[in-house]
Design a protein around this nucleic acid. Sequence first.
DNA 1: GTTATATAGTTATTGTCCATAACCAATAAA
DNA 2: TTTATTGGTTATGGACAATAACTATATAAC
Lengths: 179, 179
Amino acid sequence: MAAREDTGEQEDMAAREHRAAEESVVAYGALERRIGYALRRAQIAVFQDFYRAVAAHAISPAQYSVLTIMENNPGLSQTQVADALGIKKTNFVAMIKELEARGLALRTPMPHDRRSFALSLSAAGAALVARLHADSEAHEARIRRAIGEEAYGALFPALRGIVRALRADHGECSEHAGG
Amino acid sequence: MAAREDTGEQEDMAAREHRAAEESVVAYGALERRIGYALRRAQIAVFQDFYRAVAAHAISPAQYSVLTIMENNPGLSQTQVADALGIKKTNFVAMIKELEARGLALRTPMPHDRRSFALSLSAAGAALVARLHADSEAHEARIRRAIGEEAYGALFPALRGIVRALRADHGECSEHAGG
DNA sequence: GTTATATAGTTATTGTCCATAACCAATAAA
DNA sequence: TTTATTGGTTATGGACAATAACTATATAAC
C-alpha cells in the first residue's frame, strides 16, 4: 500500500501478487449478511466511543451500567443488580468492591438479612453518574446524528426484539450484557 | 425504587422487602437510551444463538469469520486476514494455528516471500464452512423472523453506519471485531 | 554491496470479561 | 431440628484483546 504506485511497468509476478494483495478489498461473503458480525463490530466501535466520551472519569461501560442501576434502584442487593445486568454474581463482587473502594458505591448491611447488602450511590457516586449521563448523552447524540433519527430510533426496539426472541428460544438461560 | 409496591398489607418488613425485591422490575433509567447497552445485550444473545446453531462443529463466531474470509479470499496472508477482521496479527497466530491443527486451514509458504503464508481452506475446511453457512443461515432466519423483515434489513446499514461514523471520528484507530 | 528500515510471523505477558465449582454464613422450608 | 436455599465470596480457567520484543526475511538508501 504504502509504496508502489502502479508503474505500468512489467513488474514480475512476485511484485504483482504482493501489491494486489495489499490493495485488494477483501470480500466478506456471507459475513456481510451475519447480524452477529455487524453487531459485534458496531458494539466495539460504540464502546470505544463511550470510553472516549467518559475518559476523564475512568469508567467502563459495565461500571456505568452498574452505577445507573444503583441510581435508579437504590437498595437492591448485589445479586439483584447483577441479575438485572446479566452479570454473574461471582463476577460482580470485584466490580462492586472497586466502586466502593473508589467511594462511589455504598454497601449497607441489610437489617433483616444479615447476608446481604443494600447497594446505593454515595454522594460522590451520584454526582459522578450525573456527569456520566451528560457525557454519554453527547456520545449518544454523535451516533444519532451519524445514522439519522429514524434509524437510531428503530434500533432500540429491533435490538430488544432480538434479545427477547432469542431468550425465549433458549429457554431464557443466561441473560448477560456488561455495558 | 424497583422494589416495594405499596400493598397496603401489614406483612412484616422482612417478608415484604424480600418478596418485593424478587418481583420488582428494576428501572433501567438512562440505560434504556444507551445504544451501547442495547448493542451489547443483543450481540451477546446473538452470539449465544450462533454457538448453539453451530454447536455440532465446535466453531466460535471468530473462527467462523476467519474461515469465511479465507473462503472468499484464498491466498491472503495472516496479516491481511487479521486486518480484515480487526484482529491483531499477534492474536491471530493461535487462531490460525488451531484451524490448521484441526485440518481446516492450509498455510502454504509463499514462493516469493519466504516470510509469509498464503492462507486457504482445506477440502475439509471448505466442506465445514459450507455447513456452517447453512447452519448460521438458519440462525439468521430465526432472528429475521423474530424482528421482521424490514427491521432486520434496516439493521445492517444502521450498524455499518455507526462503525463508519465512529471510525471517522476516532481517526480510524483500531478496527476490531472478532466475529 | 552494505547498511538501514520495514514487514510477516512469532513468543511472552498482561488485562478484561465471562463461566464453573466450591465454600461460609444466614435464612427459609420440612 | 434437620434440610435446602440463598447472598456473598474465593479460586480458577477459558476466550479475546493489547503491548513489547524478537527472528528472518525483504526493501530502500547510500
